[in-house]
Nucleic acid binder design. Structure first.
Length: 510
RNA sequence: CGGAGUAUAGCUCAGCCUGGUAGAGCACCACGUUCGGGACGUGGGGGUCGUAAGUUCGAAUCUUGCUACUCCGACCA
């Protein structure tokens, strides 16, 4: 059977992932350690994600700001847990000039900065500094800010999209008068991420609260959305943090209340990153490449003319261009439909397989027979094959155009449905004891597919939770989150046998 | 940052053990024949062999340092 990739998911999921990133024009390695080059199909997906999520962020009352890339080093030290969490992965800027010393360029000792800067790993501190100046009165609250930016964390081990030293993201930062308002914001944005992920990325997620040992450094509570990849591992796809007054205390973010007293603000932060692209790949990819969800496909319908260096080629091209023009007048997912005629020089068969690897949702192929007969031959990427055979369909031109937007929405629905079915089918909810957990996941490293375990626990904290974490670590497991959606009755704690207080998701993770 | 591995043409790799001056397939270019489904033939272009040093008459090949990537571990909103 001929496949569009050299490696199948079953042979090696990690190798398959790497190949798809290259073969689908998503990204490649760069000369800069741990940093990647975004290729057009991958960056195009990001632009569309940005467009939709930015709208949702604005609709919930936030405004975009832009803060500096470099943060004075002293800022990061202001919140104790925060600095401890990030100190080990910080890039530091210490000089502002280079000097040629014996033929090699070196930082000029005379140009050493009095106070070094760090390249932002996240912007709580520099935004908090601004908040402290901007917020005077209860009338200034809530302050709802967001920024689209790049950040840098000097990670020891990187993987394209999933963990890179530099990555692109959006980070929301808000300040509120009290805990209730800040918590409401935290949960609102978690819900924005959940619906965005499902509606736009066709990636079902479980929203819930992280256990205390997985919290963001400096947070009082951290919530996440977790997505199941095709190898059964969990991917943390977005987080929303309630920061309490930790950062306000550290940075003196206070307001004068109605009674005239000075009160600390309660702050939040929340973000999703280009990691989502990795999630889309591992959710929707198949052995022929990516299946790009139509809502974020840079090209939703790609038309490949079948040219033969003959006079009728002109008719075929004209027919294709007219078809694309008509399709581009349509609206899909609330935006102009994105159709393209691939007029690049090259063999049609090669072009077709390139679009299959990238995962254009609908691939139209027009030969002279279609052009002459007013027909459209097309294939759906969500169901590319029928066994070894590529599934192609034939439609009348007018009917194809009339149904195009609906077709894209249907494909989006199929992808979401498949992912939902897979996630639901791989959720183990009948594990009752730690021995059950061990026998399900197996003690050692295994290539076999393992799903997630949804189990009840008594939610220990402190040293008890640490010890529990070690037991899970031996099985390469982590607690992903405690889903917001909890059952009415809980059994016994899978770890202690005592009374359980909530259910949690346990899984191997990226 | 610890352990293991890898680095030769755009890609996948051979050559290295046993040192003698660069190879294959795919991709690319030209021409021809094909072409409703990843075509075929003939010819051609492309590499200071990751990098720096050492050994040697001579290094892709042997030695050492460095860098990057992959896997495992540690770390990881």
């Amino acid at each position: 059977m001929q496949r569009a990739l050299g490696v199948t998911r079953a042979q090696s999921f990690p190798d398959w992932y790497q190949e798809i990133c290259r073969a689908a024009d998503l990204a490649e390695q760069s000369p800069t350690r741990g940093s990647m080059i975004f290729l057009p199909w991958g960056y195009g997906m990001w632009e569309l994600m940005q467009r939709d999520l930015d709208r949702r962020i604005k609709e919930t009352g936030h405004e975009n700001y832009y803060f500096p890339l470099l943060i004075p080093m002293s800022f990061i030290a202001k919140e104790a847990e925060h600095v401890e969490g990030f100190a080990k992965e910080m890039a530091v800027v210490t000089h502002h000039r280079l000097k040629n010393v014996g033929g090699t360029l070196q930082p000029d000792p005379a140009a050493e900065l009095e106070e070094p800067y760090i390249i932002r790993p996240t912007s709580e501190t520099i935004i908090g500094d601004a908040f402290q100046r901007w917020i005077k009165s209860y009338r200034d609250l809530p302050l709802l800010a967001n920024q689209w930016a790049n950040v840098m964390r000097w990670e020891m081990r990187t993987r394209l999209f999933l963990r890179t030293s530099e990555f692109l993201w959006q980070e929301g930062h808000t300040a509120h008068a009290d805990r209730a308002d800040a918590m409401e914001e935290t949960m609102r944005m978690l819900e924005v991420y959940r619906t965005f992920s499902e509606e736009i990325l066709a990636m079902p997620v479980v929203a819930g609260e992280k256990p205390e040992n997985e919290r963001f450094p400096g947070a009082v509570a951290t919530y996440s959305i977790e997505a199941m990849m095709q190898d059964g591992k969990a991917l943390q796809a977005g987080t929303s943090h309630y920061l309490g007054t930790h950062f306000s205390e550290a940075q003196n973010i206070r307001y004068q209340d109605k009674e005239g007293g000075l009160t600390l603000c309660h702050t939040t932060s929340w973000g999703v990153s280009t990691r989502l692209i990795g999630g889309v790949v591992m959710t929707h990819g198949d052995d022929d490449g990516l299946r790009t969800p139509p809502a974020i496909a840079p090209r939703q319908i790609v038309i490949v003319p079948m040219l033969r260096d003959k006079p009728e080629d002109e008719d075929v091209l004209a027919y294709c261009r007219a078809l694309a023009a008509d399709l581009n007048k349509l609206t899909a997912f609330g935006a102009p439909l994105r159709a393209l005629v691939d007029t690049k020089q090259g063999r049609s068969a090669d072009k077709r397989w390139n679009w299959v690897r990238r995962g254009a949702p609908v691939l139209v192929e027009i030969g002279h027979r279609d052009a002459a007969g007013g027909k459209v031959s097309f294939m759906r990427r969500d169901a590319l094959r029928d066994g070894d055979k590529v599934k192609t369909q034939l439609a009348d031109r007018a009917a194809f155009i009339a149904g195009a937007a609906k077709l894209l929405e249907e494909i989006q629905g199929v992808l979401l449905g498949e992912a939902r079915t897979r996630q639901a089918g791989a959720m183990q909810d009948d594990l009752r004891t730690f021995a059950d957990l061990e026998s399900y996941f197996g003690a050692g490293e295994t290539e076999d597919f393992k799903g997630w375990a949804r189990v009840a626990w008594s939610k220990p904290s402190g040293a008890d939770l640490e010890a529990l974490g070690e037991r899970l670590k031996a099985l390469k497991l982590t607690i992903r989150n405690a889903p917001l959606d909890q059952p009415k009755t809980l059994g016994k704690c899978i770890f202690s046998g005592g009374a359980a207080v909530e259910q949690i998701i346990i899984a191997r993770a990226y």
